Computed example of a mutant assay.
Amino acid sequence: MPDVAIIGAGMAGLVCAQQLSQAGYSVLVVEKSRGLGGRVATRRLHGTCADHGTCYLKPKGELLGRFVELLRSRHILEVWTDTVSEHTENGFISQPQSPSPRYVAPGGMSAVAKFLGQGLDILLNQRVVAVTPTPENSWCLTLESSTEEITAQALVVAIPAPQALMLLAPLGDSVLEAKFLENLRSVEFSPCISLIAGYPPTSQPLPQWKALTFVDHADLAWIGLDSSKRPHSQQPHFVLQSSADFAKSHLDTEDLQPVGQYLLQSAAQTLLLPWLDSPDWMQTHRWRYAFPSRPWHESILSAAIPLPLVCCGDWCGGNLVEGAMLSGLAAATEVNNQLQHLLLPNVNFLDFFTQ
């Protein structure tokens, strides 16, 4: 029985796990997917890789800034570009007035999560389908594909709020106070459809920009020349992300291939790159909980019950990767305060990796 069970191996869950593990707690992370990182995700396909979730890191605060410098020193991250251009409604492409570096992993952004997962006890491909309190004053986690159950003194739920609500709502008012579930229900997300498309090496002309944001486009939000991140890339490939409104209208479409083709046609017409709608290959992905559109206003959401239960994620504060990391640290502090009051790492989990 671990001291703490953490559901979700995204950035918040991994940071929380590292902080508690370094303090001396036994921690088990349970993740439904086959890889770490949540939206810090990389697909490997056609002899290359592409970042179809978080496409780069742009640190603003001290924590993410230190983390990026650490990953640069380990040759995991490097500067990709200091300019993300904007495509406006009238067809002009403008440059930002104050450029700032964007950092990427040449081996794929999932390398960031793999670095964070070092030394942790993680169960992959295991979906938690039920959470219940036990008479022994612990949490019991039921897994979808296993007859074994996990019990832990404390539970951290580090997944999108709507998924957390589906898992915790069955506990009802008899276990959780109504206000906690109401707060969880108040969080909303915008979806996104992400597309990876590869082209012949002879495709011309390649754009001068590496990344482009669409301003007020009905269908498109962002496009990046993802192959420019990769050393010795054999062919150009792009990652395209839809607008939230477009994704909402196609969120439950069974076959996303025509949806992806439509996005490519729209991008080809908008950017005056006619060859863009004729890729050698393409793959489309649905992110149901891409961006917190109505985040929780605090760094965690903790249940006021005797058994420690803390929710965390990028939706706590709503500042994407940086917010997720800060939320994970806050969740670790809250769990520690409710358990053994061990000495947490002096500054944060990063000290462990610099020793």
Results as ranks from 00 to 15, higher is better:
residue 130 A to V: 03
residue 128 V to K: 07
residue 216 D to E: 15
residue 191 P to A: 14
residue 175 V to Q: 08
residue 231 P to F: 07
residue 261 Q to W: 04
residue 240 L to R: 04
residue 201 P to D: 04
residue 261 Q to H: 04
residue 197 A to L: 09
residue 244 A to E: 00
residue 174 S to N: 11
residue 152 A to E: 04
residue 217 H to G: 00
residue 253 T to Q: 11
residue 255 D to E: 13
residue 137 N to Y: 08
residue 260 G to R: 05
residue 192 C to P: 01
residue 147 T to K: 08
residue 240 L to C: 04
residue 217 H to T: 00
residue 212 L to C: 11
residue 193 I to Q: 01
residue 168 L to D: 11
residue 244 A to N: 00
residue 202 T to A: 14
residue 238 F to S: 02
residue 154 A to M: 10
residue 248 K to W: 14
residue 181 L to E: 09
residue 229 K to T: 13
residue 247 A to M: 04
residue 235 Q to P: 01
residue 253 T to N: 06
residue 228 S to E: 13
residue 159 I to D: 03
residue 213 T to N: 15
residue 203 S to G: 03
residue 184 L to W: 11
residue 260 G to D: 04
residue 135 P to W: 02
residue 164 A to G: 15
residue 167 L to E: 10
residue 173 D to N: 12
residue 249 S to K: 04
residue 259 V to D: 02
residue 207 P to R: 08
residue 157 V to M: 11
residue 147 T to E: 14
residue 228 S to I: 01
residue 231 P to N: 10
residue 182 E to I: 01
residue 158 A to D: 05
residue 259 V to C: 07
residue 181 L to D: 05
residue 126 Q to I: 02
residue 185 R to K: 14
residue 129 V to S: 06
residue 169 A to K: 12
residue 202 T to W: 07
residue 172 G to V: 03
residue 234 Q to P: 01
residue 161 A to F: 08
residue 133 P to H: 08
residue 166 M to F: 02
residue 260 G to F: 06
residue 210 K to E: 10
residue 241 Q to R: 05
residue 174 S to Q: 11
residue 128 V to Y: 09
residue 188 E to Q: 15
residue 127 R to W: 03
residue 140 C to S: 12
residue 248 K to T: 01
residue 225 L to M: 15
residue 196 I to S: 04
residue 241 Q to W: 01
residue 203 S to Q: 05
residue 179 K to L: 04
residue 250 H to D: 00
residue 186 S to K: 11
residue 138 S to V: 07
residue 237 H to W: 15
residue 173 D to W: 02
residue 234 Q to I: 01
residue 174 S to W: 02
residue 238 F to G: 04
residue 256 L to S: 09
residue 161 A to Y: 10
residue 224 G to R: 08
residue 253 T to I: 03
residue 211 A to V: 05
residue 258 P to D: 08
residue 164 A to M: 08
residue 231 P to Y: 03
residue 173 D to P: 00
residue 226 D to I: 06
